[in-house]
Nucleic acid binder design. Structure first.
Length: 203
DNA sequence: GATTTGATTCTCT
DNA sequence: GAGAATCAAATCC
């Protein structure tokens, strides 16, 4: 995918990435390629309190400050990784969280990585499930998602979704600014994760 | 230095 | 619907 696409406001980029393909190249001989079609995203921006970079740049969140089109991978709840794509001007922190996807190639390998998944739709139905299915860990933090030669990159689908299938709503599981409708997903998609309000969400 | 919390998932009820 | 698993980073004292 062209890096210029990442040079737009995060709330515009997040819905634009729906239907895009996340391509995971094999890192061992004989391993198949895995492709995930993005069906759910969330936008985060430095200006709002739900963003990891809201309180300024740290070593952990440096990936959100660009350059655009790179991976920001963070570790949470003691056991899970989540994958973002950085965007913006490189000075302001912003990113798109990949929350769910359809595995359209390499399902067998994804199943090995997600033994708990009962259905194919559960393989990447959730941000940490997605990274597990594709073997994306901290090592991918900072990876260039616009480089087709890399282990992980974004590509455009030949047959993109129709625009009217996009829906928006509040972001899942965030405590602060949870009402900001920056979660985008494809309607009627079995792979979209269920909405859960944070137990301590205020207001 | 100690404590709290989280952009979660799984299992059991 | 509730509770556990599990740890890095942020926050507090």
């Amino acid at each position: 995918m062209d890096r210029a696409e990442f040079d737009q406001p995060v709330q515009t980029l997040a819905p634009a990435l729906l239907g895009a393909l996340l391509v995971r190249q094999p890192d061992q001989p004989g391993q198949p390629r895995r492709i995930a079609r993005i069906v759910e995203t969330e936008a985060y921006h430095q200006s709002e309190p739900a963003c990891h970079a809201h309180r300024g740049r740290t070593r952990a969140n440096a990936g959100l400050f660009g350059p655009p089109g790179h991976a920001y991978v963070y570790f949470t709840y003691g056991m899970h990784f989540c994958l973002n794509a950085s965007c913006g001007d490189g000075a302001t922190a912003a990113g798109v969280l990949f929350r769910a996807a359809q595995i359209i190639e390499g399902q067998d390998l994804a199943r090995q990585r997600r033994p708990a998944a009962r259905r194919n739709a559960d393989l990447a139905r959730g941000p940490a499930r997605l990274t597990a299915a594709l073997d994306v860990g901290q090592a991918f933090n900072g990876a260039d998602l616009c480089d087709p030669a890399g282990l992980l990159h974004l590509a455009r689908d030949d047959q993109p979704h129709r625009p009217e299938r996009i829906a928006a709503g509040p972001r899942t599981g965030v405590r602060l600014a949870w009402q900001t409708p920056w979660r985008f997903y494809l309607k009627d998609c079995a792979e979209v994760s269920p909405y859960r309000r944070h137990p301590k969400a205020s207001r």
